[in-house]
Nucleic acid binder design. Structure first.
Length: 598
RNA sequence: GGUCUGGUAGCUCAGCUGGAUAGAGCAACGCCCUUCUAAGGCGUCGGUCAAGCGUUCGAAUCGCUUCCAGAUCACCA
């Protein structure tokens, strides 16, 4: 039972007793008291003036007096206008600290067999290009959300849908076949996904050259040239062969995809993300066709003259939507329906969450309606966790202009920068080279992840690869640094032979900063729930920063190990231990590691 | 044009189930390392919360209108 809920009930009792009126939880606004006033929690009494028929000040005074007399946690109160500032007793705070201290996973809701199952899809790469900055935001948000949902008491299945088929894949394959001379990741030393990506670019280059040639020398228009292009025709032919299951094409496809997956695995590992179940579009698109045909038979969809299949969503205020082309091939939507079908068969899904950029808001609106029509129980309230674009200072990333920030390069750069900075500050002087590398990795990745996750997911964000990553202020390293310092204090306490205890009785009251710190620590449970309800991890990031900043001020103002009163010293060590614990738990929800020293 | 997002300090962002004088960091300028890690702490400077109207005891927060920016409305994924 938190202090918040204790007080909420106390207020309800007070109002019932004083004014014989029922009050709902919603009407009770208990907020943290502003710094400039005395007290911990403030009750806004304006809503109760209607029941008391008295001035706000008098109402507050009466409620305050009643609570002081009847609630042991309330130590004092004062009234300013319509605000009742309540001071919680020192012993109540101490009790709360002990409670937090005794719970290794404070704030996490345990997952049981009866917990609902949430499936979270994220990443969703194409196999013809390496991952870039946009994918980084997607992966970090997705894996963080998965951890948050789990902490909120859901069974979680992390899933990935790989787009491994289509004309774009054939382009890479064709280019490799024509110009590759048997190049492999081993022979070139390139990462598999980069190697394949290079051939995708190579196709585009040759294709452009062919178009230019046709237009210049054959007097063709752009459109005619695109039709006449032998390269494009060959790519289309390759796609047809692929669909027919041609052994040679399939073998090449398999080979190149394996290279790509090996490359992706490395990127995922460095990013610290993983999946429980991976789906491939090459498996799901046929299922989608089947499901659509099923819907057609049931009369949910209709066929046009050219044999294409459509859904009429005008009843839902939307347009008609294509589900199968005239030649029977599938479109994006068909594949998503097929993927949903397979997932539904594999897991008892209660909630499906798609982590996909906001440019696809319309797509998911449609998908939700279609899945609902097709009888998926979670279709109607599927969650599209829609996040904003990552923009560069020059504007959007454009592959054609070469302004795409590659995920692997980005991570390597930031880790290198962390290493240089740490070395300059002499932080790595006493480390072995292996330790130095490990700390640099943790700090660099921490900076990157925190920078991206602290921003509200819905919003577009600006990312300056050169300047944005800072190690001071509201950053990952600042939080990691504070954590490392806490661990240092705890090590020194252990060396000094100070025993940690589970119980502690103080003969002197806590000071205000200590009480506020306990209050901030305890807020963690609420923050997790809010992040889960909003499907947005940014609140956790900002909370941890506030907590750490508050602890730093405390750390600066009060000595811990130098404190002479043994009981107070132990209490402060317990306080520090728990700040460290919350920071570690919170950062874990963001997928950020914290080092014991740095 | 329709629909959906967003607009808060020079910059990057918090705050949004309505509550007290709108907060951080960066940048700029001062101060603090003989004291538990200075990736730190303290201070100064910086705001018409895009604009207007409305709802009410009270609006950055809710509603309407306007302006600006982005996304989307494909037989692309």
């Amino acid at each position: 039972m938190t202090i918040q809920t204790t007080l909420t009930e106390a207020v309800q009792k007070a109002v019932a007793h004083l004014y014989s009126a029922e009050v709902t939880d919603k009407m009770i606004q208990l907020q943290q008291t502003k710094r400039e006033f005395e007290g911990h929690l403030t009750l806004v009494v304006f809503p109760f003036t209607r029941m008391s028929h008295k001035k706000p000040e008098d109402t507050a005074q009466e409620i305050g007096e009643y609570m002081l007399a009847n609630t042991s946690e309330v130590a004092a109160f004062n009234v300013i206008k319509g605000f009742l500032n309540i001071t919680i007793s020192s012993t109540a705070w101490m009790q709360l600290l002990l409670e937090v201290n005794s719970d290794e996973h404070y704030g996490y809701v345990p997952v049981t067999d009866a917990s609902p199952l949430a499936m979270i899809e994220y990443s969703s790469p194409n196999t013809n290009k390496p991952l870039h900055l946009g994918h980084v935001r997607n992966n970090l948000l997705g894996s963080s959300l998965a951890r948050v949902m789990e902490a909120c008491g859901n069974k979680v299945v992390k899933t990935n849908i790989v787009n491994d088929r289509g004309i774009h894949i054939c382009k890479s394959m064709l280019a490799w076949k024509k110009y590759g001379q048997g190049e492999t990741p081993e022979s070139s030393g390139k990462k598999g996904d980069h190697l394949v990506g290079d051939y995708y670019v190579s196709f585009d280059k040759h294709y452009k050259a062919e178009l230019k040639d046709l237009m210049d020398n054959q007097q063709m228009t752009q459109e005619e040239a695109e039709q006449a292009s032998t390269l494009m025709q060959e790519a289309r032919q390759m796609l047809r062969l692929w669909e027919q299951g041609d052994p040679e094409v399939r073998a090449l496809w398999k080979q190149m995809n394996e290279w790509v997956y090996a490359g992706f695995d490395e990127t995922y590992r460095q990013m610290g993300v993983s999946f429980d179940k991976i789906y491939y579009e090459s498996d799901t698109y046929l299922e989608g066709k089947e499901k659509v045909m099923e819907g057609l038979e049931k009369g949910l969809f209709f066929r046009k003259e050219d044999q294409s299949v459509w859904a009429d969503l005008s009843g839902d205020g939307l347009d008609q939507k294509l589900l199968l082309r005239g030649d029977g091939t599938s479109v994006y939507m068909t594949q998503d329906i097929g993927t949903a079908k397979m997932r539904f068969a594999d897991y008892p899904i209660d909630k499906m969450i798609y982590v996909v950029g906001n440019e696809q808001n319309y797509h998911f609106q449609v998908l939700s309606i279609l899945l609902d029509k097709l009888g998926f129980k979670w279709g109607k309230d599927l969650v599209h966790f829609s996040y904003g674009m990552v923009e560069l200072p020059e504007g959007k990333m454009k592959s054609r202009e070469g302004t795409v920030v590659d995920a692997d390069d980005l991570m390597a750069d930031i880790i290198q920068t962390a290493k240089e900075t740490s070395t300059e500050m002499g932080k790595l002087d006493e480390c072995t080279p292996e330790e130095a590398d490990e700390i640099s990795r943790i700090v660099g990745m921490g900076a990157l992840k925190y920078f991206i996750l602290k921003v509200d997911a819905r919003k577009n964000m600006t990312f300056n690869p050169k300047e944005s990553i800072d190690f001071n202020g509201n950053t990952g390293p600042f939080i990691q640094y504070t954590y490392a310092r806490i661990q240092s204090v705890l090590r020194k306490a252990a060396q000094a032979g100070i025993e940690m205890t589970d119980t502690l009785v103080l003969d002197t009251p806590l000071n205000l900063k200590e009480e506020e710190l306990i209050q901030s620590i305890a807020k963690f449970a609420q923050v997790i729930q809010e992040a889960g309800a909003d499907y947005n991890p940014s609140g956790i990031a900002n909370y941890i920063y506030d907590l750490v900043k508050e602890y730093n001020q405390f750390y600066h103002d009060y000595s811990i190990l130098r404190e002479e009163n043994e009981q107070i010293k132990k209490m402060r060590l317990m306080l520090s231990t728990n700040v460290g614990k919350i920071v570690k738990l919170g950062m874990a929800l963001l997928g950020i590691e914290v080092p014991d020293r740095m």
